[in-house]
């Protein structure tokens, strides 16, 4: 059964215009999210994951700007709609959960009034109905004593509780797409598992698609259907979750997987990828990963590889595969 495409991002370019010049934070990123599907975007800090998600939400703020490409949501190009139309989408069809549950709630208002805000903004309901709905949402995300929490201030709740509240807010209007920017990074491991489980359940119930931004491959393995690996503002590999973990194609993906501790191979020393993500000044002319790549060749230094299909829906941006294909074909 083929599911309908919900979100399609093509050749998205988001640049930050600094005094020293334009910094291409997202440089030609394309991908699709189907209805009810969970797509994980992984990569190191600074590789453009968060900027991609903010671009989709239309929340890139100055000096950042979307300079090219389009974002189609339900066939509607989000890069061309007005701010007013965007506001109608945000919180309604498009929702986002941020990394820091501790600062994502306004410290001066009760949980209830913040929950009501999003409901009243997008639904034609009375205050009392909004309150009912708010409490119902809190119960849905597994918060005990929902009525009491509804009246509490953010500082009275723990981090895990606050993240549940954020999820309740994000899902209050039954969005079609939920963007979760490192939703569990700030939480401890047991709470992480609970939050992930909760997200998975809610998503299944409502057929909501998730775009999960993370650098935690454990979370990816648990949640994702499709994985997109980003490096220095580009997609370097895309595959379904089983393929990616079983047969990572791009050296960067292999590096990421090798740098994740595995319980079976406890005696082995943990691998790390040498070096850091290049900055604007040090951005290589050829493949962006070659300075850190164990397989780098002359070709990698000179020319940038393009994103290649290597079968089974797997895409990879690496000369190794181009060479192989050329040899076999």
């Amino acid at each position: 059964m083929k599911k309908d495409t919900l979100l399609s991002v093509s050749e998205l370019k988001t640049y930050f215009f600094m005094e020293s010049g334009a910094v291409p934070s997202v440089h030609g990123v394309s991908f699709e999210v189907k209805q009810g599907e969970t797509v994980a975007i992984v990569g190191e800090s600074g590789c453009g994951k968060s900027v991609t998600s903010l671009s989709i939400m239309g929340l890139v703020s100055s000096p950042g700007k979307i300079v090219g490409g389009d974002i189609r949501f339900h066939g509607q190009d989000l890069t061309t709609i007005s701010e007013k139309e965007y506001r109608k989408l945000r919180g309604n069809d498009l929702s986002m959960i941020f990394q820091e549950p501790l600062t994502s709630l306004n410290p001066l208002f009760t949980i209830g009034s913040q929950l009501d805000e999003v409901i009243l903004l997008h639904q034609q309901v009375t205050k009392e109905e909004a309150r009912q709905k708010g409490i119902e949402m809190l119960k849905k995300v597994g918060i005990p004593r929902a009525e009491q929490v509804y009246r509490s201030y953010p500082h009275q709740l723990s981090g895990g509780m606050r993240q549940r509240v954020m999820i309740a807010m994000a899902l209050a209007c039954e969005p079609k797409l939920l963007i979760a920017d490192e939703p569990t990074t700030a939480l401890d491991v047991t709470i992480q598992a609970q939050i992930l489980q909760l997200m998975r359940k809610l998503v299944k119930d409502n057929n909501t698609a998730i775009m999960l931004i993370t650098h935690d491959l454990g979370v990816v393995a648990e949640m994702a259907d499709t994985v997109i690996v980003m490096y220095a503002g580009q997609v370097v590999e895309q595959a379904d979750v089983f393929t990616l973990f079983a047969a990572p194609a791009h050296p960067y993906t292999q590096g990421l997987l090798a740098s994740t501790p595995k319980i079976q191979t406890i005696e082995e020393e943990l691998q790390s990828i040498e070096g850091t993500v290049p900055t604007q000044e040090t951005m290589p002319k050829g493949c962006r990963f070659f300075p850190r790549c164990p397989h780098a060749s002359e070709q990698c230094v000179q020319n940038q590889p393009s994103l290649l299909k290597i079968g089974g829906g797997q895409l990879v941006r690496c000369w190794l595969f181009d060479a192989k294909e050329a040899a076999s074909g």
Partner: peptide, 14 residues
């Protein structure tokens, strides 16, 4: 720069 302001904008507040 605090996230609740971003979050408010992300739920569509003017």
């Amino acid at each position: 720069e605090r996230e609740f302001v971003k979050a408010a904008r992300a739920i569509g507040v003017k």
